[in-house]
């Protein structure tokens, strides 16, 4: 993984102070930006593999940074945000952020998210017809799902939902995003559909449906599909 550069955007010097050595220890090259403007120019000039972005910046709103970046870049973005700001997170995700980490966070958690986001981006580039989620194998052209080699029967809607989640593995998807893509724009707010279908998928695919590992709930935000 050596040589992969990570851009950290935060106006708090303290955050950079502890992130730099930890990122270096994990083999990343840390780039530092204290403002949104600085971040945008660094993405252009240094082409980092991933961006860690704090939403409260002195010169512009972190969400505006996402908006500008998404106009021309597919770089994965992991947002740093306060636990109590669900709306902000949802907005950031809807604007195209890949994942978020609540402040304060443990370094291990942040590293895991970075890995997942990077891997997901690579998988996306592959466009394989067969997707994998843990021990679940999804054969898109044949509409078949195998769990540990045994076929699992899914309704067309369940399959569609699962395929959509698997295609975006490692990324947090907001309720609205999933509903819009799978059920259509008219059903954007019918979260109850989503809860019912996710429950059914978990019952059919998870080893322990009470403690899901494949489809994980992000309370108040949406779902994250397991690594």
């Amino acid at each position: 993984m050596s040589g992969v550069s990570v851009l950290v955007v935060d106006d708090e010097p303290a955050i950079h102070r502890f992130m730099a050595p930890a990122l270096a220890a994990n083999g990343y090259e840390a780039l530092r930006a204290d403002t949104g403007t600085e971040a945008l120019s660094l993405v252009v000039n240094r082409r980092p593999a991933i961006v860690i972005l704090d939403l409260g910046l002195p010169d512009m709103d972190g969400k505006d940074v996402i908006r500008s970046l998404r106009g021309w870049s597919e770089v994965p973005i992991v947002v740093l945000s306060a636990r109590d700001r669900e709306i902000e997170k949802i907005e950031a995700l809807d604007l195209g952020a890949d994942d978020f980490v609540n402040k304060p966070f443990s370094m291990g958690e942040l590293m895991a998210r970075l890995r997942a986001a990077l891997r997901h981006r690579m998988q996306e580039k592959g466009e394989t017809p067969i997707l994998r989620l843990g021990d679940v194998e999804i054969d898109i052209p044949r509409h078949r799902v195998l769990r540990a080699g045994a076929e699992v029967k899914l309704t067309p809607k369940e399959f569609e939902l699962l395929a959509f989640l698997a295609r975006h593995a490692g990324k947090v998807l907001t309720h609205r995003h999933i509903l819009r893509e799978v059920w259509g724009p008219a059903n954007e707010h019918d979260t109850q559909y989503l809860r019912v279908y996710v429950g059914q998928l978990r019952a059919k695919l998870e080893a322990d449906p009470a403690n899901p590992a494949l489809i994980v709930t992000e309370p108040g935000v949406g779902y994250r599909t397991g690594e």
Binding site: E12, A14, I15, R17, F18, A22, P104, F105, S106, M107
Partner: peptide, 9 residues
């Protein structure tokens, strides 16, 4: 966040 980040690092 700094303390937790530094400690977990």
């Amino acid at each position: 966040a700094s303390i937790l980040g530094a400690a977990t690092s």
